[in-house]
Design a protein around this nucleic acid. Structure first.
Length: 290
DNA sequence: GCGACAG
DNA sequence: ATCTTGTCGC
């Protein structure tokens, strides 16, 4: 059965209070427990991936394009058809020369299966509301859904750039998108919106993690509830300066499984491969735009 | 009034 | 997020 919740899609004219109320509904509809068939080992990306080099780039919006590789090497490059499809989404912004505010968002979605890119697509949409801490999903949610619509692949897992449950109302970007589509989702943020790490996060070794617990800024959860993890995805031997990632479940995942999945999706860079590739593709589309 | 805040 | 070259270190 289809448990997607298009009814929770925000109306563009919502007031701030209405947006916050909608987030409480979204959080209530979200599941922060494991409800999926994903095995971190099955989604793992063992080697650094890349967008299918040498293939025509995906068309913006309507026409997503397969990037599976040459026919000659199809036997080697065809990913396991039974492996789950993991989709990373990220955005880049376009600012008209002379303007100070970005007026359009380029959303990119990159699908991987068995550690290889199988498809990528993008959508360029005009921006309606400005960035407001806590309300990011109202700025980036629709653009992201547009990019997902441009993809033929059916995501088994979404990796979003931003928070999921680590949010004032437990309804960050990853939760918003995950609930609207009823797809397991994870939020990967580069800085912490709210909550408290159990331990100091500075100068930690690669692979290290610590729980993030709700503090009084999280109005919908009891203080102390684990809402995510700080995760040191990468660290350099000598110079200690890489900040950890802040990983939180978006929908249908526990906080623990969310970090396990992200750890499995990292392959040498700070960001998990789906996010890193979506980031790179969004930049490419943006550059081609001007 | 002060603090504090994803992208 | 964005505006941007070189530069420090492995």
């Amino acid at each position: 059965m289809d448990l997607a919740r298009p009814d929770l899609r925000p109306d563009p004219s919502l007031s701030r209070a209405e947006m916050e109320a909608l987030q409480r509904e979204i959080a209530a509809a979200a599941t922060f427990e494991d409800d999926h068939g994903l095995d971190p080992a099955a989604v793992a990306v063992e080697e650094v991936a890349s967008l299918a080099d040498g293939l025509p780039p995906a068309r913006d919006e309507a026409q997503a394009r397969l990037g599976t590789g040459d026919d000659e090497r199809s036997a080697d490059t065809t990913p396991d058809p039974d492996a789950p499809t993991v989709v990373g989404v990220d955005q880049a912004f376009l600012t008209d020369r002379g303007e100070d505010r970005p007026d359009a968002a380029v959303s990119a979605a990159v699908a991987l299966r068995g550690g290889r890119v199988i498809e990528y697509a993008s959508a360029t949409t005009s921006l309606s509301i400005p960035y407001i801490p806590g309300l990011l999903a109202f700025r980036e949610g629709e653009p992201i859904l547009a990019a997902l619509d441009a993809l033929d692949a059916d995501p088994d897992l979404l990796i979003c750039d931003g928070s999921g449950r680590i949010h004032f109302r437990e309804a960050g970007l990853a939760t918003h998108v995950g609930v609207l589509r009823d797809v397991p989702s994870v939020g990967v943020a580069k800085s912490l919106l709210c909550g408290d790490p159990d331990e100091v996060t500075d100068e930690r070794p690669e692979g290290w993690r610590t729980p993030i617990r709700a503090d009084d800024a999280v109005t919908t959860a009891e203080a102390g509830t684990v809402i995510g993890h700080a995760f040191q995805s990468r660290q350099y031997p000598n110079s200690r300066r890489v900040n950890p990632l802040y990983v939180s479940p978006g929908h249908r995942l526990s906080a623990e499984t969310a970090v396990d999945l992200v750890a499995a999706l990292c392959a040498g860079y700070k960001l998990p491969e789906p996010t890193r590739l979506a980031d790179a593709y969004a930049d490419t589309v943006k550059r081609d735009a001007d």
